[in-house]
Design a binder for these strands. Structure first.
Lengths: 192, 192
DNA sequence: ACTAACATGTAAAGCGTTACATGATTTA
DNA sequence: TAAATCATGTAACGCTTTACATGTTAGT
């Protein structure tokens, strides 16, 4: 272990990155970003490249991850890959078990626009909601496709459950947008 | 107007605060925070006191809001109240109409835990989901209560629609938690 | 050979929170 | 009158992104 002061007070994003490593693979920052975009993205915002790189440094400093440089097959450039340590596994397990779960954070642009509906033309409000509906359906399909390719692999059972959740979540988002479109139509109809 | 450089490039939170002012009332930072907690909160995270205060300063600097000091009835302490300017109204309207809506941002702690299910005991996972279910139902009831008290006031028609949306959204969150509890039970049942 | 996309980082700027400081008002 | 709550801010800190720098690989 190293640097006692930075222990157990890490921000949620650090734990998310350490969580990615907790599946046991040895990964580079770039790998982690790509994987994060395809998994966390559905229910947790995916951190930027630069943040992943700095989180990795912090995790290594805390003794939760170790890194080594590996030479590319043909090229001359080296890359740094990270692996979780035993202490890191213990720490992320303790975090997952003991730290109280805080309520979900939502920043829902389309609803902010609806809330400011008095500033928009009816057609514009409709446009915003239609776009959101499309977005939700696209996300649902992605989650479905990923769930398909991950099924029956016991090691990914829990990630697969989050994909199932995401599929339902974005279906609900899509339907809520549709319902709100009706509500807006009714409102505009009452006083045109 | 003032400070041309800070115009139209404000972060979303600034527009949210200016949006609060766009309903026309003259409000203090404290008022805005309270109102924000009871309205934006359901679909957009509510900024802290300190951020609201600094956003107000920025809005005033940009010429989108004006402030004045008012003396309290009996006390000696003064407070600063803000009102949107004509230019601010035009700006927030232009923002709402022209700025592309970016996809919702979600940081869903319970799902992050589920994703890391391999680190938890089954009972702990169940506990997390139950807590989330309770949270969702509490939010749903709040949205419902607020919608009741806001109905039939034409000026709040759009905010009322967001409360209706929130009521459905948190109902869905509650149901998704229940469904996921079943999924987890099935998973654990298959390999105990 | 050139371009676009892939890959690995660093540096600077800005967003947002927590902690702190201060005073007024209500309640016990 | 003491404590708790309401109310109004400021300052410091830390998280996070955007912009930048640099080299590599694959397609045309």
């Amino acid at each position: 272990m190293a640097d006692e002061t930075t222990k157990r007070t890490l921000p949620a994003t650090s734990w998310a990155v350490l969580g990615l490593l907790s599946f046991g693979e040895e990964l580079s920052g770039y790998d982690l970003k790509k994987w994060s975009d395809r998994s966390l993205r559905f229910f947790y915002w995916s951190p930027s490249f630069s943040q992943i790189y700095s989180e990795l440094k912090r995790l290594e400093k805390a003794g939760y991850a170790s890194s080594r440089l590996v030479a590319q097959e043909t090229g001359t450039r080296e890359k740094r890959v990270y692996r979780i340590t035993d202490e890191g596994t213990a720490a992320v397990r303790a975090w997952a078990r003991e730290t109280p779960v805080d309520p979900p954070v939502l920043k829902h642009g389309p609803m902010l626009r609806l809330w400011l509906g008095h500033l928009l033309e009816p057609g514009q409000m409709r446009e915003v909601l239609l776009r959101h509906q499309e977005f939700a359906e696209k996300m649902r399909l992605r989650a479905m496709a990923d769930a398909e390719s991950a099924k029956d692999e016991a090691a990914w059972a829990y990630p697969a459950l989050t994909l199932k959740w995401a599929e339902r979540y974005y279906a609900s988002e899509r339907d809520l947008a549709a319902a709100t479109l009706d509500d807006v139509a009714a409102l505009e109809g009452r006083r045109p």
